[in-house]
Amino acid sequence: MIAFLIKRLMHAFVVMFVISVISFAIQSNLGDPIQQMVGQSVPESQRAELREELGLNDSFLVQYGRFAANALQGDFGYSYFFNEPTTEVIQRHLPATLELVIAATLIIVVFSVPIGVYCAIRPRSALSRFFMSVSIIGISIPVFLTAIMLIQLFAIGVDFSPFPVETGWGQWLNGVLSTEGGMPSYGRGNNLTHLFGTWDSNFFSLDGLTYLVLPAVSLASIMLPLFIRLIRAEMLEVLQSEYVKFATAKGISLKRIYFVHALKNTMLPVITVGGVQLGTMVAYTILTETVFQWPGMGLMFLEAIQRSDIPLIVTYLMIVGLIFVVTNTLVDLIYGLVNPTVKLTGKPA
C-alpha cells in the first residue's frame, strides 16, 4: 500500500513535469500577452519595455527554469489579467466548478444505476428500448448544443403552435409542445451560501439550486447515457454468468440476485471508468461553463487563452493534471477495496 502510494507520487511528479514543459512550450503559439494589455496607439518601444519587464524576451530554458524554481516553492506566478497570484485566482474559481461536477455526478449516479439495471433485466421491454435510443441521441449531441437547447426551452421558452388554437385538443397539444421558460439562463445567481474560504455554495437554497439545474443537466448529458449503457452491458454479462444461474437454481429471490450478487460485480468496471470520466468531466466544464457563464475554472481557462494569460494557463493545466492523477490513484485504491484479488503493486501477495 505504502509502496503503491510512493510509486504513484513519483508518477504524479513526472506527469506534472511533462504538463508544465508542454504548456510552457506552446506558449509562443498562444499569442502575445502584451497585445491584450495595451491600447492600439501604444508605440512599439513601450511594448518592448513591458515585454522586457515581464521577462518574455528570455530564452525558453531561462523562463522555464525561473518558473520551475518558483513553482517548487508553491509560487506559480501572477496572472496578467487579474493581477493576483494564479493560485488565488484558481482557488476562487474552483468551488464553482466542483459544485457543477458534484451536481452532475449526482444526476448521473441517481439516474444511471436504476435505468441501467432495468434495461439489463428487461432488455426487450418498450421502456428499455426507449431508454437505449434516447441515450444514443444523448451521446451524439455535443454538450454546447444541449446547453443552448436547454436555455432556449427552459430559460427563454418556446411558443410552438402547429395545432388549431380554437379547439381544446389543439390547445392542449400546443401546450405540451411549448415551454414557459423562466429558468435562470446564466451565472450562479445572488443567493449563495457562504461555506468557508472562497467556497460559496449553490446547494443550500432553492434559488441557488435553480441556477445549478440547467448547467448540471447539460454537463451530465454526455456521461449519463454512457453510464446507462455501460451498466446495462456489464449487468447483462454478469446475469449470464455461472454463479447467477446457480443462485437462481438455488431459489434465491430475484431481487436479491439482481441487487446484491449481480450489481456488486457490475460496479467494478463502472468505478474504473467513472474515475477516468470524472477527470474528463472537468474538461467538459470548459464548454458548459462558457455557455452558462458559470464563473468556474473552465470559463476562466477559456478567457485566459483569449487573453494569452500564460501563467494562469500553465497553472490551470497543472492543477487539472493533478486532479487526474489524484482521481486515478483513488480509483485504484477503491478498486483494491472492492475486489481484494487485485494487487496494487503488482507483486504476488
Binding site: I148, I156, P184, S185, Y186, G187, V291, Q293
Partner: peptide, 17 residues
Amino acid sequence: TPIGENATRVSALLSGD
C-alpha cells in the same frame, strides 16, 4: 455582468435575466 459568449448574452436578455 460580463458574458463573453454571444449566444448566452442574447439568451440572458431574451429570458429576462
